[in-house]
Design a protein around this nucleic acid. Structure first.
Lengths: 182, 182
DNA sequence: ATCTATTTTGAGCAACCGTTCCAATTCTGT
DNA sequence: ACAGAATTGGAACGGTTGCTCAAAATAGAT
């Protein structure tokens, strides 16, 4: 646990380095020595600040998972459009975190039961928030709006998935098409 | 290159083992010794049959990518419903290959440029085939049917993505809801 | 300026990675 | 039964992995 300024700074450098690597070279490309090289830190300093390599990686991943949620103070008021825009903003505005999030959800969650649960529970939160917004706007049944929310979110995730493979893909435009076509 | 029966049999066991591991523990959990243990093979036999560990893994991954396509003899005739059912069949009927496919698309393709291209080109094939079917059924413009196909496929991929995280998720039912609600 | 707590350096460690090599064994056609 | 080829077992290798530790350097409060 860092107490002096230099400690806090190298801590930040390590996190930044890990974030960058996770997004570019994936989970298994993010080796300790790669993190150290990029952060310009030796292993001794690293282990003075972090418990293990896993701790840094999990810290960054949690950060990414949390970032996918829209501002929590809008609960119960936001519109479908606002929620979709928040999703688009997350994906295109923070591509690094977005890639980490998607990659983790698919690859990492296979090994780590707790992580899979975490991702799923965030997904569930987003579905119900979207369902509420749909219900407010269209005045359908609870079950029906929930179904619509699930399908809409699946569409958004699928578009993000496509964007991951092809960075030239205009994910934002397609996402708006998706909402428009409901 | 196997010529005698025992060689062919251990080759099959190695492929099966790799398939199983890729789907269960992911790419970096699929180590050589894990493959060997599960296949009940020693390294000497392995390297008598395969060039490298990568060769086996790529073989299995290509198999998974190819398996996502519906039967090629239906081109130009199949309906939207048939294509969607083929997708559902792939995901739920061959969950092992499906998991590998999805995982590869998200994680593996980041490192391997050629692999990313391969996945994308298969995706493109599916989109255009779906667009053709939509056009035949709804008689809209080419651009419009293509957009619809892209969004529909994104939805399906998103649902598969959800199913990957939560094996209890009824992906087939939601996929049919998705088609019904167009 | 001094003293303690924090931070950094960097050599070194055990465990594991994919791979090589070759002698021993097993297979198949004759 | 024999010969030649395919297959197998398994010890060993160099490289990398994540990580430890003790000594040296630095920060910050007094």
């Amino acid at each position: 646990m860092a107490r002096y300024l230099p400690g806090l700074q190298t801590r930040d450098r390590i996190l930044e380095s890990t974030r960058w690597l996770l997004a570019r070279v994936g989970l298994d490309g993010t080796t300790l020595s790669a993190i150290l090289d990029r952060a310009k830190v030796r292993s001794g300093s690293f282990y003075n600040l972090f418990e293990s390599k896993d701790e840094v990686i999990l810290t960054v991943i949690r950060e990414a998972i949390n970032a996918v949620d829209p501002h929590p103070d809008g609960v119960g008021k936001d519109t479908v459009e606002e929620l979709v825009e928040a999703y688009i903003e997350f994906i295109t505005g923070q591509p690094t975190l977005a890639k980490i999030y998607l990659q983790t959800a698919v690859a990492g969650a296979l090994n780590d039961e707790a992580l899979a649960h975490r991702v799923l529970s965030h997904h569930e939160t987003r579905v119900s928030r979207l369902a509420d917004a749909i219900r407010r706007e269209t005045r359908t049944t609870k079950a029906r709006s929930r179904l619509e929310a699930e399908l809409l979110l699946a569409g958004l995730n699928g578009l993000a998935f496509h964007w991951l493979l092809d960075p030239g893909f205009d994910m934002a435009a397609r996402a708006r098409d998706l909402v428009a076509g409901r």
